[in-house]
Design a protein around this nucleic acid. Sequence first.
DNA 1: TAAATACCTTACTAAAAAGTAGGCTATAGC
DNA 2: GCTATAGCCTACTTTTTAGTAAGGTATTTA
Lengths: 121, 121
Amino acid sequence: MIEFNNKIYTCPIDVMLGLIGGKWKLLILSHIFRYTIRGYSQIRDNLPGISEKMLSQQLKELERDDLIHKEIISEKPLRVEYSLTAQGMSLSDLYTFASTWGIAYLKRNGIDYVKDQNLYK
Amino acid sequence: MIEFNNKIYTCPIDVMLGLIGGKWKLLILSHIFRYTIRGYSQIRDNLPGISEKMLSQQLKELERDDLIHKEIISEKPLRVEYSLTAQGMSLSDLYTFASTWGIAYLKRNGIDYVKDQNLYK
DNA sequence: TAAATACCTTACTAAAAAGTAGGCTATAGC
DNA sequence: GCTATAGCCTACTTTTTAGTAAGGTATTTA
C-alpha cells in the first residue's frame, strides 16, 4: 500500500491508473501525442462520443496532473493549443504500445484497422 | 469508429481499454504476470481493497476474454491456479512499463517505492 | 446584424462500476 | 463436532463516472 496525496494505492501501477485511468484520458493523451499539438475542437471531433463537459473536465485534470500543457494563443482567431508535457511524453511508449496491440488484437479478430480505417471516420 | 462485438470503439486503444480497463484488471494481470501462477487467495491478499465479488467477477471476464487461464488442480487440498494465456502475456511490456513508470513517478514525488516497499504490506 | 465556430461552464440525470453483507461447498486440522 | 481456509455466488446498495441539455463569451464570416 502506498499513501500519496491523501489516497491509498495498491502498487505503482495503481498510481499510474489514478492519473490516466478512466474512459477518456488515455484516448485524449494518445490523440495529442499523435498530432503533437491539438486544439479543443480537433480533439473533440476526433473522439466521437465525448461530450464537451467530459472533454474540458478531463483536459483540466490532465493539465492539473502535469500531463498536458494548455496554451492560449492570442492571435486573430483566439484559440487554445494542447500539447504533452515532458511527463505526458514519458508515457509515449504506452501510447504506441497500446495502439499497436489494439490493431493486432483487431486483426486476430478479423478486422484490418490499418487497411479499413478509411471506413471509420 | 470501429464496430466489434456489438460495441463501438473510437480507436484501437479504446478496444484495448474495453478488455483491460477498469479499476482492477490491469492490477490482477500484472500481479499474475509477476508471480507466473497464482491462486485465488494469493491474488486477493495482494490486492488490498478488492472484494471477493469483484475479484471473481474480474477473473471471470479476463478468462472469457482469453487473457488468463484457470486451472482447477484436483490434488489433496483442492485449489485453483490462474496464469496468463498467450494473449495475456502479449501485454507483458505494458505491465513492466506501467510498473516502472509508476515507480519513477513516485520517486519524482518523493516516495522511494523500491526502497520502502517493506513498509507497505 | 444574423449565423457560425471555438471554447468552455453549470445543473441535472443516468448508467456503470464497485462495495457490503451474507451464504454456500469442500477439505483439513484439532 | 467445531473451526478454519480456499474458492466462490447472489442480492442489494452506494459511489463514481459519464451523459444530456442548456447556457455563455468572444470572435469571424456572410
